[in-house]
Write a protein that binds this DNA or RNA. Structure first.
Lengths: 335, 335
DNA sequence: TTGTACGCGTTATCAT
DNA sequence: ATGATAACGCGTACAA
């Protein structure tokens, strides 16, 4: 099973190896007829363009490294769609590296991409300190997606604005006791808390931020307690859809109706929010567009390494569904 | 920014390039002390092992190509976890290629992997005719995952058995009018229909197979009609979780209670089945284990190309949750 | 269009 | 045992 090489094609076509290379790259310097002839012979011989050798010769620079934090999270699938779209438009090859949930650092996958000698890396959901990211950025230019890293090209969503949208929506519906179920302190999405708190204070209301977890079950337990209290909120804004589902679990367990007795907003607009009978109001980050933008920046950075730092802050939008509704009026509900 | 090469390390360490290579591969032929010395210097120089050059030199064969049909489907995330686990145990590099939903053929991603000169390919959810798959298999050995392809190493789930499990469960609960919401005819999972029909006939009942689609909305519409009829089934077995969700939508719309008025079983045991208040009974394919097994076969095939065809048929399991319950007794329900 | 010097490890052959 | 030398893998790019 000796693999066919360009040398074989050259011999069979009666031309030089260099010309075969030119033909396969759609480069200048070969007549249309000869090109056709070469490709036909290549076809017959079952030749597949050897990207390994090509990358070595070009020092790999034409390919784009893509890091995705977690395949189990559909957000990254959206992001990948956007990245691929732009990469294909520009005829760039993608090299993928996937994070692992067990690990808290993403240094290894980045090193893998560097080992593949990619020219630039789009990293979605990087779990790395700013300093470590800067170190990697010095070796191969990085574009951080979904996280704003100082000193590194970044494409991210305006989390503060998203939280404001969510909070405003609840305020407009007449809610006054609105709680924020916050991310675990580690994950850096503090802007969501800030946006929520700012809007509440603007409205002359007391913010009530409740620290929760990533686990739907744990969130449900916390929500159960919160909703049973005398001063229970009439609306909850959750740091992501999964947490929002936990809140909905608690609402169901208490025999209440989401959108009527208690309003709930999530964050991510993931498909998990639209299971039957769920129909969660949520903030959409526009993952596909984030992917597109990040790849555009990556291409620009690659062609002009000395460009000053680039960034794109995207505006999220609120997708209103049925888990939010007018504030129940009358006296506070007691369970 | 000239990248450091083994040559640089060799110079700095006062040894030959060959020895550096040996050190970096943990190969025989270098004393522990020298090895240590070399690696330290490599570290200082910020060297990252160049996989491109390495793959070219070894003719790439040590890496495993992985094709995943769809990142939006969490099943493939599970599969990938299993693949990675085994690959890492054996110190093999993975090269990824992702299918696209718009396309119906997966020839392009396979060609990409061949271009990366991988030694063997694990392909999960291949959309290719048996013949085309065989052609690809001749170039680079293929292991088909989740689909049994004659003449190609395959690791797949026993769909017939899964359908039998589901149907048996409903029969044991006392259901008699059980409908199967079948896959679109194109997708080849005919075994699920067969398993269902066999069990029904065994029980002396009439199978009722209803052809549906992949779209949850369309399934819901069909289910609405079916459930409104006088001879409405008391239980539905759906070809996958998404379709099952559509059925649940219709049940909710009709004001009925799943698990009490109508039982529903899905297929895939995906996380979509566990939204709040959903808790879908489903058949689990064990994606992670499929990934592991496929990779084991791939490694074996790679080391012994002339082995006769290998395959693993895995047994699915039924995960009982709350959308299935005893058949409602008494007269047929009328809406 | 072609000849040919790379790109960067790997590995078989030699030398000590 | 350790280490060195040199040929090789397969395209790419530039001068001729």
């Amino acid at each position: 099973m000796a693999r066919t090489t360009m040398e074989d094609i050259a011999r069979a076509a009666g031309v030089s190896r260099a010309l075969v290379s030119i033909a396969y790259r759609n480069a200048e310097g070969v007549s249309a007829a000869t090109r056709e002839h070469i490709l036909t012979i290549g076809e017959e011989l079952g030749y597949v363009h050897n990207r390994v050798a090509a990358n070595l010769a070009t020092r790999g620079s034409r390919s784009i490294g893509v890091y995705l934090q977690d395949l189990h999270n559909e957000f990254f699938a959206d992001v990948y769609d956007g990245i691929r779209e732009v990469a294909e438009d520009h005829d760039r090859e993608l090299v993928l590296a996937i994070g692992r949930r067990e690990r808290d650092s993403d240094a290894a996958p980045l090193t893998t991409l560097q080992g593949a000698r990619v020219g630039v890396i789009v990293a979605a959901g990087l779990r790395l300190s700013d300093e470590t990211a800067l170190l990697h950025n010095r070796r191969v230019p990085l574009v951080s997606l979904a996280r704003d890293i100082p000193g590194i090209d970044s494409v991210y969503s305006d989390n503060r604005r998203g939280a404001e949208l969510a909070t405003s929506h609840l305020l407009e519906l007449g809610h006054r006791r609105i709680a924020f179920f916050a991310n675990p302190p580690s994950d850096g999405y503090l802007d969501r808390a800030r946006g929520y708190e700012a809007r509440m204070l603007e409205a002359g209301l007391d913010p009530r931020t409740i620290e929760t977890s990533y686990s739907r079950g744990e969130v449900a337990a916390i929500a159960g307690d919160v909703l049973a209290a005398a001063d229970a909120p009439t609306a909850v804004f959750a740091h992501n859809d999964r947490a929002a589902l936990g809140v909905l679990d608690a609402i169901a367990a208490a025999g209440l109706a989401p959108g009527r007795d208690v309003s709930v907003i999530g964050y991510d607009n993931s498909s998990a929010g639209s299971a039957p009978g769920t129909d969660l109001t949520s903030v959409d980050l526009h993952g596909v567009e984030l992917g597109r933008q990040a790849t555009e920046l990556a291409l620009r950075r690659h062609s002009r390494p000395d460009l000053e730092r680039q960034f794109v802050r995207m505006q999220p939008t609120l997708v209103v569904r049925s888990t939010t509704g007018p504030a129940p009026h009358g006296l506070p509900r007691h369970v």
